[in-house]
Every structure is written in C-alpha cells, then in structure tokens.
Design a protein around this nucleic acid. Sequence first.
DNA 1: CAATCGAGTGGGAGCGCTCCCAGGGGCCGG
DNA 2: CCGGCCCCTGGGAGCGCTCCCACTCGATTG
Lengths: 342, 342
Amino acid sequence: MSSAAQPDRRPTLEAVARLAGVGRGTVSRVVNGLPGVSAKARTAVEAAIAELNYVPNPAARSLVTSRTDSIALVIPESESRLAAEPYFAAVIRGVSSELADTEMQLLLILVRDRRELDRLIRFVEARRVDGVLLVSVHRDDPLPAFLEKTRIPTVLVGRRSVDEPLSHVHSDNAGGAAQAVRLLLDRGRTVVATIAGPLDMDVGDSRLQGWRDAHAERDILPDESLVAAADFTEEGGRAAMGELLGRRPDIDAVFAASDVMAAGALTELRERGRRVPEDVAVIGFDDSIVARHTVPPLTSVSQPTEEIGRTITRLLLDEINDPAAPRRRFTLPTTLTERRST
Amino acid sequence: MSSAAQPDRRPTLEAVARLAGVGRGTVSRVVNGLPGVSAKARTAVEAAIAELNYVPNPAARSLVTSRTDSIALVIPESESRLAAEPYFAAVIRGVSSELADTEMQLLLILVRDRRELDRLIRFVEARRVDGVLLVSVHRDDPLPAFLEKTRIPTVLVGRRSVDEPLSHVHSDNAGGAAQAVRLLLDRGRTVVATIAGPLDMDVGDSRLQGWRDAHAERDILPDESLVAAADFTEEGGRAAMGELLGRRPDIDAVFAASDVMAAGALTELRERGRRVPEDVAVIGFDDSIVARHTVPPLTSVSQPTEEIGRTITRLLLDEINDPAAPRRRFTLPTTLTERRST
DNA sequence: CAATCGAGTGGGAGCGCTCCCAGGGGCCGG
DNA sequence: CCGGCCCCTGGGAGCGCTCCCACTCGATTG
C-alpha cells in the first residue's frame, strides 16, 4: 500500500482532511468532539481517520493550547518509606483508577534529595504538567509554598497546618487516634503511651493530638513522659519503645502512629519479655499488610488510602478545569480493625 | 517590576535573544549546551536567561525534535499485586534514581483492564513517550508483541519465553529457587514440595524449574504431586498449601515462589497444627518486608529489585539513543537470606 | 421575492522551538 | 595585500495543531 518513500512519518491532520475531502478545521472539530459538523462530513472524517490510523500529535496540540494533559504525583520521601509503606502504592492505585476515564496521564516524581528537588522545580516551571498532587507534607517543606507561588493547580495529601490554604485531603488522624486510645482505656488499660510520628508533620501532630483528646475526654491529664516521637520507621519505633519503657516501666498499652513503628515496638517488647497483649496492648495505624503478619497481629486504625488517591485526583481535575474556584478540603473517616494485640 | 499588561505569558527564546542582543540560534545553542558559541555571547545569554527566568517550552521542542523526554513504566497487574508487593515499589525507586541525572521523566501506567489497555495503546501510538518499561510479563500478553510491532524502544522485566527477542532483565529465578531447595535438602528434608507462581509467567515457570533442577542434581525424581500452582496472593498460597497437604501429608518442607504465598502457607500450616520449622520448613521468594514479620520469620530468596529498576532504565536509555543497536538481556543474581523458618 | 439568518465550512495566522544555511569577520599563508 | 578558511552568528522555514474569522448556501421571514 502506502509503503512509499517517506521514512516513518505519521499521518497529520492535514492528510486526514485531504483524504476526507474536507478542511483542517472540520477534522479538528471531529477529533475533539466539537459541535458544528454535519453528519456527512463527520462520517467521512471518521473513515479517513480509521483508514490512516490517525492519532493527533500531542506536542502540537499542547503547543497551542498550553495544556499537557498530564499531572504529577510527587512523593517527597526518603528511600525507605516508599519501600516499607503500602500506603503510597494504594494512593497511586486510587489516582490511576480515577484517571482511567480521562485523557490525563500520571507522572510519578520521587523527591529524595536537593538534586531531585531542583529538577522538580525546573519541571514545574516549564509547565510540563497541568497540576500537581503532593503526598506527605512536612510543616516546613518549601514545596507547597513554591507550588502556591507558581499558581499551578495543586492538591495535597495532608496539610502543613490546620489552616492550610491549598486544597487538600487527609484522613481523620486525630479522630482515628482518639478512637484507638479510647479502646485501650475502655479495656481497662491505665498507662497508655504513644509512639508519635514526626512532629513536623501534621499527621504526626494530629495523631498525637488524638491521643491527648481521648485522655482529656476521660479527664485524665495526659502525661508527656508517655510520649516518644519517631520517624515512621521500624527501627525508630523500636527505639522509641525502649525509651518509653525506660522512663515508664508501668506502661500497659501503646498506641503507635504507624504499623511499621508498632512492629518495631513489638520487637522491643518481646526482647524485654513483655507479653502482648497480656502485659502491654498495642495498636498501630494504617492497617497495612504488616499489621496482619506481626506476632500477635496488630489492631490498627485504617484509613481509606485508595479513596484518598481518588479524591485528590478529582479535586485536582476540578481545579485544572476551573483555576479560579476556591480551594477545597476533605477529611476522610478512619476505621478501627481489631486483632489480637489488644 | 514587570507587572505589565501581558497576562501570564512566559518568556520565549525570542525574548531572551532580544534581551541578550543575539539571535535565536545562539540562544538555542546555549540552552542546549551545543558548541560554537563565543564566550561573550554565552555569558550575555546566560545573564538574560537568569533575568527573565527563562525555561524552554517542552511542547515546542518536542514538536520539532519529536522526542518527548519521558518514558513509561507499565505495570499490567491486577489491583491486588501492586498493593501487596513491595517489589514494584523497589523497581520504581530504581528507575527513578537512574533517571535522576537525566532530563527524562517517568510516566506510571497501571493496566488493569481492557479499557486501560486500549488507553495505553492509543498513548503509545501517539508517541507520547520515547520508550516503554514493561514489568511483569505474561506468556500470552499481547502487549510485548504490540510494542515490538510499533518499534518503540522497550525493555521488559522478565520475558515471555527463553528466547525473548526484546531487551529484558530478570533475576536468576531458576538459580535462586534451586539454591533454596538445595538448602532444604541439605538440611535433611526429604519431601520438599513447592508452591509455584502462575505458570503462564516465566517467573513462575523458572522458579518451578529451579525446584526440579535441585532435585535432579541429587538424582531425585521430582514428584509432580508435590507441585501446586497459585497466583502470587496470600489466599492462593494458603489454598495451595492445603491442597499439597491433602495429597501428601508427609511433606516436610515447602518452597514457595513468593513471600506472600509463603505467608499464606504458614497460616495454613499453623491451622493444621504443623510446626514451622520443626515439622515443615518453609522458604519464600522476594525477601520482602512480609518475610521479616511472619511467624516464624521467613527464610527467603532475595532479588536485587532496585538494581533491576536501574538496569532496565539504563538499557532503555541506551536503546532510545541508538534504536538500531541490538537488543540486550541481563540476568541478575539472587541471594538467600536465612531466617527461622528453616 | 428580497432581505435576513444561522449552520457548516475552509484555511490563514501563529504557538515556540530546532534545523540549517548563507553570510560576516578575523586570521593565516602565499 | 589578497584569497581562502574557519568560527560565529542571525534568521527563514517549518514541525502539526487550534483558534478564529470570513464566507457559502439553503432556509426562514416580512
């Protein structure tokens, strides 16, 4: 057939127009599903498109519309976290599924060091994406501020503080934590410690706040010697547990702000001969696969991770379509899954 | 300052040229680091770029070079896997780190159903990426064939069969499996069963082959009643273990082709009152976080997942730069990590 | 029956860049 | 002192698309 001289050149709008016997404008209208095309012309164009196997050149389109039809998912985390936490994978799944019936594409950007950060900044400045999804926000993270300044549509998972101006979605961290601590108190535990997450993150902060709230409800003055912060890693959780036990040997329950830290705590408890749940009850957060496989399996607060992914995507798409609309926030509910560690 | 009339228009090459008092060609040469620019001109251009905060428009560039400076990582898996397996996360990290000192961007594409597959095909046909990384290949997967036909640079993780024509990287599945089984036999186990992965995948196949090889080395005729295939899920592993025990109550060791399946097997063994490792020794594959938290912790074959990510990326970049070069393949070594399940 | 209208259409202009070629010096050797 | 070279340099052409405006033509209206 058309195995002519041309090397590997794909058919253009122009070629389709010629074959269909119409103008470029008409083809463009058909391709973009715009109105104002007669049935006859539309049929002819569609036939030509099929025959030539025409696919529009996105770069050319992007050049004139200055849209890229893609969004970035930015994960600013140290090596270890993406590996250990199924959390990110679930968010990715949610984002991807929400994007499935769109023409939008997903760019994944891991930011682990200064170099990668600079790269991201250049990238956003070049407007290579229509919007940005930012997962895991630290209080003094320069990234949200940068995105705000650039005025690129942005949605965060988590927030810098309670009055975050950017659109964001987070789970009810304080509520979930409080629910966990309430369960422990209800079961008759009296010395409930907590292994908090990084306190420069709202997640860390809020989960700790939940622990305080649950105590306050019962008119118990939460004792700050029962708090140790860690960095969401297993090793950190283990060290924090050691520290707590050193300070307060009378601890009979622990609420950890993540399953991975709870797993570390379990190791430390076992090492020190404390039985779980007989001597010390333990609750984690995330309800990840780890929770089901520890000894004993962990009671854990689960957040709707995939739903978070879906929600941020929906918000971002709305914001891209109407950049003038006000920013929005969503708090998603958590649930408590009880296992044998309590 | 320059808060003039223009709405939000970013500076163009032209503007930089004007400010620097040179022509567009010179600016383009500076931006792309091409030779043939006098020191004086280069300095002037660099100053102008800094002053205007100029960033090239990738769409315009792409239109003329027909390169997109991005690659796609395609993960064609059912919902469950991305969640359960840290494997993918590690590969992503490897890819991302290898891309870090490149201008290349990473597009993540999850393909879970027909709709998403069609979307991917359209996407590749529009040449929206310079190359494709395909993780987790099934024997009859139409995707590799499609990519081959399209002649877009492609690198696979895994292969359709032993004579895969496309570039690919995989770990020494058969070797790792054989090593595991050898350990079991060396420890005096005599009835070593295996929970194989999906047999329509080379990983599944090869790991099973390793089990056979290790038996053959010892002149043991591997008994096919000791083989049960599952789908890499925990539930599947558990069911397979039940099946095996039903057929052969005398089993004293099991090699599972993934940690997650091994975890399922452990559950089933416990349920049936078999002690691990006293009655039955168990080995998994992947050395994932799950392996460290099962009861008892799993001995497991670990593959260099992050290195796999790095290697495929390197291969793909080479292939993009020289599409005529011959296809390449790499087999990466596995190692055995011993824990208390053996 | 002329004037008016709106639906449908074709194609010029232009998005911002790279490619490439023609041309302007400066410097060398004859 | 002139021809020949080699560096640099500027800018025309063109990538494939959307936007928009001017135009045609049949149908409707006074």
